[in-house]
Structures are given as structure tokens and as C-alpha cells.
Design a protein around this nucleic acid. Sequence first.
DNA 1: ACCACGCGAGAAAGCGTTTTCTCAGTTCTC
DNA 2: GAGAACTGAGAAAACGCTTTCTCGCGTGGT
Lengths: 344, 344
Amino acid sequence: MARKSASGRIGIADVAVKAGVSHATVSRVMNGNFTVDPDIAARVRAAAAELKYQPNPVGRSLALGKTDTIGIVVPDLANPTFQAILRGLSRAAAQDGYRVLIADSFEVSSEESILAGEARRRCDGLVLCAPRMTDAELEEIVPSLHPLVLINRTTAAPDVPSLVVDYGQGVQDIAGHLVQLGHTHLAFLAGPPHSASNDMRLKALETFKAAHPDVDVTMLEGGSDFDTGHEAVDAVLASGATGILAFNDLVAMGLMSGLHERGLDIPGDISVTGFDDIPFAKYTTPALTTGAVPITELGEQAWHQLRALIRKEGNETPGGRYQPRLEVRASTGPAKAPRSTVHG
Amino acid sequence: MARKSASGRIGIADVAVKAGVSHATVSRVMNGNFTVDPDIAARVRAAAAELKYQPNPVGRSLALGKTDTIGIVVPDLANPTFQAILRGLSRAAAQDGYRVLIADSFEVSSEESILAGEARRRCDGLVLCAPRMTDAELEEIVPSLHPLVLINRTTAAPDVPSLVVDYGQGVQDIAGHLVQLGHTHLAFLAGPPHSASNDMRLKALETFKAAHPDVDVTMLEGGSDFDTGHEAVDAVLASGATGILAFNDLVAMGLMSGLHERGLDIPGDISVTGFDDIPFAKYTTPALTTGAVPITELGEQAWHQLRALIRKEGNETPGGRYQPRLEVRASTGPAKAPRSTVHG
DNA sequence: ACCACGCGAGAAAGCGTTTTCTCAGTTCTC
DNA sequence: GAGAACTGAGAAAACGCTTTCTCGCGTGGT
């Protein structure tokens, strides 16, 4: 009977007809506007319930100028770090009635700015994780993305909070831990060449080297995933280092796996550390010593910062800096007598 | 100057004014409608470029009746299985210019149907993962969710493709593998009580028991995460079983971790298997024998099915059934002489 | 030279809401 | 008892776009 109007889905007009009132009144009732007669309101609600009317969010968004949706741009959804950020963000946002639209750039940083722009236009705000984007490009697009929260990047633009993890401090803490265990030859299995967080680590290790002239720190090329770590076994062994700082937990796990295949004992022969403290880190064998980052909390904070921006509240604490906590587990131990350079 | 109209953002009207044409013409140009004079088109494009005009997707969506967005409802974003589905879905959808909106129900199945409805209304289609929802509830909401693709659930409603993994077959394959290794006492560390995929496994194990009267299969209560497995150590040991089928890889990893803490050797003392073949499964120590599910591919397929529905194409292959592949790794081995029931 | 026809672009009508504006009907005040 | 203040609900505008409708103008045919 009084089913659908033209479009197929039932809309505010159908309810209005059924209740014998105008669109406007239905809208008022649905939005809890109390300037409407209780009897009429009841009639409208009854009609709405009977027709199972649900307001069309697109029409609503257009009229209200907001979507109740935020976007997040990540370089790789397969990376546990971004998964955790997404999770924290999504949960926190959901609590305030916001949804999350995801945009995975699949590591093609050239796409990132377009993706970010598109996502932003569909949403009320954006969280941007773009570790590989150049500074120039970042500065270029940032103004058009507001309200925006950056993860592990900073910008000169105003009103753009940055949530950054102090990878520099973290990596120095780990290096210090290894040195304390008697290691005098460390190796850093670096991350992706142009990653911002990798740069932070490299710089910090330079500082560390300067402060510890007695310890040797070899830099090795790497990446950010499992396979990188696995493939780096030869290079690591060739370096002769006994304490290895992997770029992150994934790389460390790959490396450990490779070392096991070579029959080496961790930490007996060689100590391995990761970074991030992804959920699996405590279940590896041996459990991984790492720099723990409260990454889910970071996603949550990202939402709080973004929410403040969206609501145009005075953002009392713009941005935030997270100190990694050294999490000592079983993958690090006292150094053996320094090995000479081993081959194969 | 000719910056913004009222709203703050620049819109189609601003471009129209700048190019000295009507809104309609700008729209035509932006949509590649060729019925417009090349000179004018060029002028419009120039104006658009100069103003950095980008069409407002909300207005567009309202006019076109589509959002170029799909939704996915998952019970737990922390679960690698759903992360993988999301990843596959997101990547496949992105290739066709669609974005993904996520709705995490955080295991509160009472919220799932509301969440699903909300998500659906904002999107052109929905992928629903709701393992715990009752059949009745599912049947109730399914009609209002079309276009819809179900993961690991089926429905009587028409035009609702289901992508289901044959957990039953998978679990029987694993059990068979263990029996072949000489295990005569197996234990199944079950998943969440009302999960659809858990029911499939339980039923299959009954079948298996009937076909193998000589092997003992103990059922143990469990869950779906790491901690569940870890906490189940005592129960597993008490059962006396030598071949353990964990609900999934996460549970298996937790269990292995617990067994290691007890000083037990895997697979020397006890064989452990998982399910899913999450990325980490091959890097555990020992590497985990599991039922491999091409889970990312499943996400991808979900998109293809959904796309067919959205485009109203005749869906040649509605739904699909995935056979897990037995992936034998190092966590399973020959049975020791049957242990008598051990305590603590 | 005139008419029909086609082409290109502006005017206007949607899309489904919210919200302002407006006005009829009451109630209150002096 | 008449005008003012108020209340509640409908009419209409707005949100930003796409698309149909319409119409002026130029072209080709006879």
C-alpha cells in the first residue's frame, strides 16, 4: 500500500503522508524538536515505526554539512602497526557516533595525496599516516585537509596536531640495553629508505655512536616486513654484530626465523630486538625484546584530537609525543665473546 | 576574490561564475559529457583548475543515488582473520574506485544488526561478518541490507551470496593428519560457543568420531584468541590428548606458548594445530600446522560478488565455498606412546 | 528565402533532509 | 473586546550536485 515513493526506499515523505503531516514536522519529530504537539509527535513516530523509516544519511549529510564519518589514510593495511592505529581510532570514534572510512595507499606514496583529498571530502576529518610522503608534498596538501591529525609526521601548518612516537629515544634505549648486556658490536637493520620514522632512528643512532665511541654500530639496509628480516640473515651474520636492532617487530621476527634456520641460538649467539611491541611480539620464541609503543592508544588519541578540531574546541593539548617503553624479554641476553666476522 | 560562496568551500557555482557559464555546463564538463563546446570546456577546466575545484561527493551522492562506498561489519578488528578479509576487500574495491567503511561491533552481537543497518544506509552495499548473530536475527535483517554479501553464514533470502569456508572439511583433514601420525587421542579446543564456524567444526568432528571409533576425541571449551589458548593449557594436559586441534591459529599460538612454559616439547610431547593460516603461523616456533584459508582472496571475492549485485549483473556464480588446504608444518609429529592422564 | 532539424547551453527540477520563514489560530493583557 | 504576544505546523529555501527540459541559434534542404 503506502509503501514506497518513487525511489524505492521509503523516505520522509512517505511518513509525512501516512501521519497526515508535512515533511517538516516529521523531520522535527525525528530530531527530537519539542515544538511539536505530543499527539502529533506520537502519530508521526507510529507512522515511522510502522514503515520502518530510517532517515537517509546522505540527504542528512548534505543538509547538515557533516557526515559523522572520519577518514584514515594508511600506507599498508597488512602492517600490524596501522591495524592497531585503525582499531584504536575506530573504537574511540564509534563511541562518539562516528564511523571510519579507510583508504589504503598500498605503499604507492604518489597516490597518497589524491587518496587523502578524496577521503577528506567524504568525511568530517582525516587521520593521515604517510611515512614516505616528501615534506614538500605534505606541506602542499595539508592545508586542504583540515581538520587533520598527522601520525608520525609534523608540519608547519597551524591547527594540525601531530602524534609522534619518539623512535629516536626508543632506539637509543634499546641500544643502551644491548650495550649494558656487554654487546660492543651492534647492527641496525634499517627500515624503508625514505620513511620518516626510519630517519628518526638513524639520526638517533648517530647520536648514540657519538656518545659511545667504544661500540661499533653497523648500518644495514632493510625494509619493514617479515621477508626483509628473513632475507637479511646473511648480511647480519656477515656484519659480525652480536646485538641486532631490527627496524620493527616484523623484521625482527623474520630475522629470528632466519637465524633459527641457520641453527643459531637467540639470545645465546646473537641478541635480537624489534620495535612497536605488536601483539605477537610476546609470543615469539624467544619472546621479543622491543620498544613498546602504545599504538592502539595512539589511534584513540588521534580521534580525541580530531574530535576537538571538528567541534572547534580550543585544543588544549595539540598533538602529543609518545615515549616507547623498553620491554625486555627473552630475545636479548649477555654478549658472547665478540665473534670475528663470520662467513655464510 | 572569487574565492568562496557562502559555505566556505568552493563549489560548482564558483567555477560557473569564473568561467562565465551555468552550473549545468560545469557539471557536464566535469563528468566528461561531450555535448559541450571544446572552447567552453577548456575555459571551464581552466577555471576549475585555478580554483582547485573538487566536486562535493555528498551532493554528488544525493543526486546520483550512490556513494561509491561499501561497508563491512566485523565482530573484531583485532582478529587477523577479519583484518585479512578487510584488506582483500579494500584492495579489490579500491581497484574499482570504491571505498570501504568499517563497522566494528566489538563482539557485541546485539549491536550488529543496528550497525549493519546504519552502515548499509551510508553505502551502496554491505559485507557482513556476524558469526555470533542468531539465525533468526540474521533472517530478519537480511532483506533490508541488500545488496549484501555474507561471510561464513548462509540465508534463505534470495540474491544474497554467501562466501563460506568449509571448516568442517578442514577440521576433518587436520584430524586425519594427526591420526595418520599415530595419534589416537585428540582434543578439540573449541571456539566461541555460539559461533557459526565453531558449530561447523563440532559437527564435522562428530562425523569424524563416527568414522574413527578407535580414536578418542575430547571436546574442550575455548574461545578465539591468544589468551584462550594460553589459559587452556591445564585442561589440554588433563585431557591426556596428544594431538590438539585448536579453534584457530591464535588459540594454537597461545596454547603453544603455554606448553613451552610447562617445558613441553612440540611436537615431541604433543602436536598442536591451528586454523586459518594467518601470516604469523609460519613464523611460530615450531611453525604451525594449520588449515590454510585463502582469506585475503575471500575478501576480494566478496567484493566481486557485491559488485555484481550493485551493478545488477546476472551473478553467474552466486556465493562460493572455500576448501581449506592442510598446511603441514613443524608443530605436528608422530605420537609418543599414549600418555596416561597427566596432572598439572 | 523559409522551415525543419539538430546542436549546445541555460533554466529548472529533482535527490532527501534540515531549517528558516511565514502565517493561522490561541491565549493573554489592558 | 481588541490588539499584542505566542504557539505550532505548513510552505519554501537551502545544501551541492546531476539531468531533464526547453529554447535560441545556425545549418541544410527544397
